[in-house]
Amino acid sequence: MEKPAVEFQHDGELAYLLLRITIGTNICMHGVSRILSGTASFAHSLLPLFQKTPLPGWAVLAFGLTLPWLEAVFGLLVLLGLCTRFALLAGSLLLIALTFGSTLRQDWESAGLQLIYAAVYTALLAFRNRNVYSLDSLFGFGPRTRE
């Protein structure tokens, strides 16, 4: 028995919502957990990892102090679907920086995981027209009609 097309009409929007909430929660909690544990502690834990790279310690420390806040903010924006385009672009740029650091350290496992995050960000950006269940859409910044 064939199901009516109406049942599946909004599946694309629901799938987008679920993926956006999942990645938003993941990234936001990366930041929140590091903030709650202490950003200085997190930043200092990066120093030994980058000791054998050409990056100066002050740059690693500055990035480590900033990263948790950026993750928390960009993740929250993606989670809520607020300023979604900006948050996805900014999050992608952050992932490029993280990938640079991972590959510089030859940490291929982390670099591989970051590729998965990058693919999710790319998919969310490419299908942003499905972002109808979001604060952007509620405030008139996102798609208002369903295709």
Rank of each mutant, 00 (worst) to 15 (best):
L79W: 13
L79M: 10
L79G: 03
L79S: 05
L80V: 04
L80K: 03
L80E: 01
L80R: 07
L80I: 08
G81M: 01
G81E: 03
G81D: 02
G81F: 03
G81I: 08
G81V: 09
G81H: 06
L82M: 10
L82Q: 06
L82C: 11
L82P: 02
L82F: 14
C83A: 15
C83T: 11
C83M: 15
T84K: 05
T84G: 06
R85K: 11
R85F: 13
R85M: 10
R85T: 09
F86Y: 15
F86H: 07
F86A: 08
F86V: 09
A87L: 09
A87V: 05
A87D: 01
A87S: 08
A87E: 01
A87N: 05
A87Y: 04
A87K: 04
L88N: 05
L88A: 08
L88W: 01
L88P: 02
L89H: 00
L89M: 12
L89E: 02
L89G: 03
L89R: 10
L89S: 02
A90H: 01
A90D: 00
A90I: 01
A90R: 03
A90M: 08
A90T: 00
A90F: 10
A90Y: 06
G91H: 00
G91K: 01
G91D: 00
G91M: 00
S92T: 12
S92E: 04
S92N: 01
S92P: 02
S92Q: 07
S92C: 03
L93F: 14
L93Q: 05
L93Y: 12
L93K: 05
L94P: 05
L94W: 10
L94T: 02
L94S: 07
L95G: 10
L95K: 01
L95A: 04
L95N: 03
I96Q: 00
I96N: 00
I96P: 00
I96S: 04
A97D: 06
A97Y: 00
A97K: 04
A97R: 10
A97Q: 03
A97F: 08
A97G: 05
A97P: 01
A97T: 10
L98S: 01
L98C: 10
L98A: 03
L98T: 04
L98V: 06
L98G: 06
L98H: 07
L98Q: 06
T99Q: 13
T99V: 10
T99C: 07
T99Y: 13
T99D: 12
T99E: 01
G101A: 08
G101K: 06
G101F: 13
S102A: 15
S102R: 11
S102C: 12
S102Y: 12
S102M: 12
S102D: 13
T103F: 14
T103D: 09
T103A: 11
T103W: 14
T103M: 15
L104V: 04
L104M: 15
L104H: 06
R105H: 07
R105V: 10
R105A: 15
R105T: 12
Q106Y: 13
Q106V: 14
Q106P: 00
Q106N: 14
Q106A: 14
Q106L: 14
Q106G: 09
Q106W: 14
D107T: 13
D107M: 01
D107E: 15
D107L: 08
D107Q: 13
D107N: 15
W108R: 01
W108S: 08
W108D: 07
W108Y: 14
E109C: 08
E109R: 14
E109G: 11
E109M: 13
E109D: 12
E109V: 14
E109F: 09
